[in-house]
């Protein structure tokens, strides 16, 4: 469903991504793990068009995303929940969700999706009219995910959804990620919480300073000595 070939990203003279290739099949959960600065966010940004790769191609359902205008990418069913949530803090929870459905023309469909999201995140329901900036970190993460779901995406890009959350909330969020996957969404998940990510993923790519150093089935990597040492705390 998503194929990235020899991707390079430069920030000025900094060569942040140095030829990364990976592949996500339809229906899979694939996780990119790596330490701070390994390049996980840069890769997602290059996929969803927030930055232009300096080299390489991003193919999504056989469409070359490099040729699509960034704001059009969501129309192909690819939604991105960015790092740090980036909810619109001055807008209400409801308005944030409405913006998630910006491209949905059919108002009936919007209502349907809205109710679905509210079912998935009952906590947002109680806070519909609250400004997003006043939500807790966990609630903001739920809002960011809910906002992405409002466009009924086929594929979700999730950038460290567990960042800064308590273990209970992390579990809750991961349960929802799995649920989205069961509902048919393909998922590409960036994580530093490797243990959690590997427990739900099908495949995993390990990144170090802009390169894939290891990849394989998530189950196998859980037992891999290098991964254990570097990412699973021994």
């Amino acid at each position: 469903m998503l194929t990235v070939n020899d991707l390079h990203v430069h920030y000025g003279s900094i060569h942040a991504i140095k030829g990364v290739s990976f592949n996500v099949n339809e229906g899979e959960i694939v996780t990119l793990i790596g330490a701070n600065g390994a390049g996980k966010t840069s890769i997602l940004h290059a996929v969803s068009g927030l930055l232009k790769p300096s080299k390489g191609e991003v193919l999504y359902s056989n469409i070359n995303l490099n040729l699509i205008k960034p704001h059009k990418i969501i129309q192909y069913g690819l939604a991105h929940v960015p790092e740090g949530r980036r909810v619109f803090s001055q807008l209400s929870v409801r308005e944030n969700l409405e913006l998630g459905a910006f491209i949905v023309k059919d108002s009936k469909q919007r209502m349907l999706d809205y109710n679905k999201v509210m079912q998935l995140f009952p906590r947002l329901k109680e806070r519909e009219n609250q400004l997003a900036g006043t939500l807790s970190g966990g609630e903001q993460q739920m809002l960011a995910m809910g906002r992405a779901l409002m466009s009924s995406p086929k594929m979700l890009l999730l950038d460290e959804p567990s960042m800064g959350l308590s273990p209970i909330l992390v579990k809750e969020i991961f349960t929802i990620v799995k649920e989205c996957n069961k509902l048919g969404m393909t998922i590409l998940l960036n994580e530093q919480n490797a243990k959690m990510a590997l427990s739900i993923a099908d495949k995993c790519y390990v990144l170090e300073t802009g390169k894939v150093v290891l990849h394989g089935d998530a189950k196998d990597l859980l037992d891999n000595d290098i991964v254990k040492k570097a990412y699973l705390g021994g």
Binding site: L50, H71, I74, P82, R86
Partner: peptide, 24 residues
């Protein structure tokens, strides 16, 4: 209005607004 909300979204975070499909 939808456009009004888009304006507020862009002024707060143009990148996130792009991800929503808003033409900056």
């Amino acid at each position: 209005t939808k456009m009004g909300k888009a304006m507020r979204a862009v002024s707060e975070d143009a990148g996130a607004a792009t991800l929503m499909g808003i033409n900056i």
